[in-house]
Simulated scan of single mutants.
Amino acid sequence: MLCSKTRYFCASFASGSFLRNFSCTSAKPQANSENGRSLVGRDFISLKHFRADDIKQFLWTAKDLKTRMKDNGEIFQPLKGKTAALIFQKRSTRTRMSTELGMAKLGGHAAFMGPEDVHLGASQESFCSKLFSLFNIFARVLSGMADIVLARVYGQDFLDELANEASIPVISGLSDLLHPLQILADFMTLQEHFGYLRGLKIAWIGDGNNILHSLMYGCAKLGVDLNVATPAGYEPDPNITEDALKIAGKTGANFLMGSDPVQAVYRADAIVTDTWVSMGQEEEKKKRIKDFAGYQINRKMLKEAGGNWVFLHCLPRKQEEVTDDIFYSEESLVWQEAENRMWTVMAVMLHLLQPYTPINPMPKFVRG
């Protein structure tokens, strides 16, 4: 029989009213405070919960690991004997491969569980019907078996409560609201290409989705300028927009929010977009493609972009989102961006499990 908290949570979840403030007694100390210095034991759920220095540390370590292991051919296995449990309600080749291969490179082992393995269906209704078992089995039992959990799900509330119940670190592999790992990969890619982050102007063209939400938090935290153009009705979450703008006001990041893609790409250094039809939105495909008319990334749109602009897309890509001559061009960094998904999740797992100081110099974050 479900407890009253669980019944209330499920009813609100199924009706579309997410309980942002729902909480239970945590099985571990809540380390998501920005006042904490150590990253060990933290949950990686949102960039909002991390200081600029924390984000820089993740990026520094990702570059350090890439240099040591890929460029220098070093075998480095600090996580030997450690295990990661991967819970996937939403499928993803890149997230699964980057995490499994990354954990293996660090000497650990990852165990993958899809919806059929954890008895968690793809629908929200199925999710709610199994919520009680999920909290008890996944959060509590896995806390005794694994050292870390990465979950890729539909509802952000599930990640929040999983982190609240588990006594081991929980990493977001994506939710419908946020995708913080993708932004670390994007920042690492831009830092490798330009040599810095603060001083760049990033333009987001497309849907006001989970990737944009995390990009807004990341840019605000690091003081990176961001221009956003989304069609009417597809704007980012107003609460996240308000949060990000408050943070940007403190760090000096300039945000331009609107619907004109040509204005957004003006003098931009990086042009970023994503799929217009995400998983779970297949029934909206025809309407979305119609609503996003004029938002395809093409040469004409980018006439007034910065002189050395680059293009990013988290994949998979559809041709209506960006033309072939840009997607496969020298300006496109999508393959480097995809590879960096592995190095950044490796950095996150390493820091959440044990202290680590990179041996290579810290990369620059500010131009000049």
Results as ranks from 00 to 15, higher is better:
303 K>G: 09
103 M>L: 14
154 Y>V: 13
2 L>Y: 10
153 V>Y: 09
251 T>G: 00
322 V>Q: 00
363 P>R: 01
75 I>Q: 13
300 K>W: 14
365 F>Y: 09
6 T>H: 01
296 Q>C: 12
164 N>L: 04
232 A>C: 10
63 K>F: 14
241 T>C: 00
207 D>Q: 02
151 A>D: 04
16 G>P: 03
181 L>Q: 09
18 F>R: 14
30 Q>K: 04
330 E>N: 04
20 R>W: 15
210 N>M: 07
282 E>V: 00
176 D>S: 10
230 T>D: 05
312 L>N: 02
210 N>Y: 04
4 S>G: 08
294 G>D: 03
276 W>S: 00
251 T>H: 02
317 R>Q: 01
206 G>E: 04
2 L>R: 05
317 R>F: 07
253 A>P: 02
43 D>L: 05
139 A>D: 12
177 L>D: 10
236 P>Y: 12
51 R>H: 06
69 M>F: 11
13 F>Y: 10
73 G>Q: 02
231 P>M: 14
101 L>D: 11
327 F>T: 00
182 Q>A: 04
264 A>Y: 04
83 T>P: 01
223 G>A: 08
27 A>H: 13
180 P>G: 07
330 E>V: 09
93 T>C: 11
201 K>M: 08
141 V>R: 03
211 I>A: 07
161 E>G: 03
52 A>P: 00
215 L>A: 14
186 D>H: 04
33 S>H: 05
344 T>A: 07
14 A>W: 13
125 E>T: 04
129 S>D: 15
116 E>M: 09
204 W>V: 09
56 K>S: 10
173 G>S: 12
342 M>P: 05
212 L>P: 00
118 V>E: 13
70 K>G: 06
337 E>G: 01
74 E>H: 08
55 I>T: 02
360 N>C: 05
201 K>L: 10
302 L>W: 02
252 G>H: 08
2 L>C: 08
175 S>W: 04
237 D>Y: 03
143 S>R: 06
56 K>D: 10
121 G>H: 08
117 D>L: 03
37 R>F: 12
100 E>C: 11
212 L>E: 01
246 K>I: 11
329 S>P: 01
253 A>Y: 11
59 L>E: 04
65 L>Y: 11
38 S>T: 12
356 Y>I: 01
229 A>N: 02
25 T>K: 08
94 R>N: 06
27 A>M: 12
126 S>A: 14
145 M>H: 03
283 E>H: 10
105 K>S: 12
241 T>D: 01
123 S>Q: 02
121 G>A: 13
216 M>T: 12
53 D>A: 15
322 V>S: 06
63 K>Q: 15
106 L>A: 10
98 S>D: 11
305 A>F: 06
134 L>C: 09
47 L>S: 05
3 C>Y: 11
319 Q>H: 07
353 L>M: 12
238 P>W: 05
